[in-house]
């Protein structure tokens, strides 16, 4: 039998084969991430940039712009997940259990964070501006926590991106004051967009 024959191989060749396996494993994960993640990061980075810039300079239009672009982004994300993914999953994936756990952690984080970022009662004269800024920062950090969780299971670059944008959001919330939205357009939207472009260029 062919399989029972001993194959002559030196320890150096065995080491080279193991290194090759590690390299291929990393490469395939990066290729998959580039195929799925990069276009979505570019899309959501652009949406954040446009929406936050509108919020800063044309606040009257901001609600409509946010609503429309987030709806478009959600539909495009779902469709690209269905049709563009290089991976097809049959039956229950082990990822499904992780997804359920991730949602639970995300809700717990959202509840705790709402408590910490509070109080939501704000003096009337500062109400709108501060509440809008607060809810903006809150929503962004929740999204970035989701990226961080995804990064733990998919690719570390998403985790670093989530942490970096969370820090940038908090810095903007605490120090950018009236320029918070333009800060978020540049740092938050920009970080998503640049990470997407980086993955697209170097991981394919």
């Amino acid at each position: 039998m062919e399989q029972e024959q001993q194959i002559p191989i030196t320890p150096e060749e065995a080491r080279a084969s193991l290194a090759e396996i590690d390299q291929v494993t990393l490469r395939i994960r990066q290729t998959i991430a580039a195929g799925i993640t990069a276009p979505l990061l570019i899309l959501w980075g652009s949406i954040w940039m446009v929406c936050f810039a509108t919020e800063q300079y044309y606040p009257v239009w901001s609600q409509k712009v946010w609503f429309t672009l987030v709806a478009v982004g959600t539909v495009v994300s779902m469709l690209s997940g269905l049709y563009q993914s290089p991976i097809k999953t049959n039956g229950a994936s082990p990822l499904m259990g992780r997804m359920g756990l991730a949602w639970l952690i995300l809700f717990a984080y959202a509840a705790l964070w709402a408590r910490y970022l509070g109080p939501w009662e704000i003096p009337h004269h500062a109400y709108n501006a501060l509440l809008n800024r607060k809810s903006g920062a809150y929503t962004c950090t929740i999204c970035m926590f989701a990226y961080t969780l995804m990064g733990l299971w998919l690719d570390r670059v998403l985790m670093y991106l989530g942490i970096a944008v969370t820090i940038l959001t908090l810095v903007g919330y605490l120090y950018a004051a009236d320029y918070f939205y333009v800060w978020m357009a540049v740092t938050g939207g920009g970080a998503l967009l640049l990470t997407g472009l980086f993955i697209r260029k170097f991981w394919r």
Partner: peptide
């Protein structure tokens, strides 16, 4: 083998 057991690659 880097994929989940239930996954197929294009």
């Amino acid at each position: 083998t880097a994929l989940n057991p239930s996954s197929q690659l294009d």
